[in-house]
Amino acid sequence: MDLVKPIPRPSTTTRPFWDGLNERKVQIQRCDACDSWVFYPRTRCPSCLSDLLIWREVSGQGVLYTYTLARQPTAPHFADETPQQLAVVELDEGVRMTSTLVNVEPSDIVIGMRLQPYFDQVTDDVTLLRYQPG
C-alpha cells in the first residue's frame, strides 16, 4: 500500500489561500459588506450573504484554542507523526482553523499559548500551514 498523505488540491474558491501559503503568506477572506473575517474559504459571506469577499493578508498569528494528542493514528499515513499534535488555532482576527503544532514538546502545549505560522512545503505545489510557539 502506497502511503500517500491526503494533499489538498486547490479549487477555484480556495486557491488564493494555498497560493498565499506557497509564498509564505497567510491570506483569509474578509467580507467588505459586513466587515467580518471568513474562514474557511467560501463563495459568499455566511453572515450577510454578500459575495464581496476580498482576500487579505494577515499576520497568521493567534492563540491555541484547543488541541489533542493522537497516539493512535486514524490512518497508517500518519503513523510517522504520532503523537499527532492536532490543534484548533484562533487567529487574532477571530477565525479558527485546524492545524498541527510543530517545534514544541507535547508537555509544553497549553491552551491559550501564543502561536505563529510554520510554513511546511509538503509538495512542489502545496504548503501546509502548521503552527509553532511564538
Binding site: 494533499i7 493522537a70 490512518a75 500518519f78 492536532l86 485546524t98 501546509l128
Partner: peptide, 8 residues
C-alpha cells in the same frame, strides 16, 4: 481541506 490534510 483543513482537517484531513493535517491528519485529523
Amino acid at each position: 481541506l483543513f482537517g484531513r490534510a493535517y491528519g485529523q
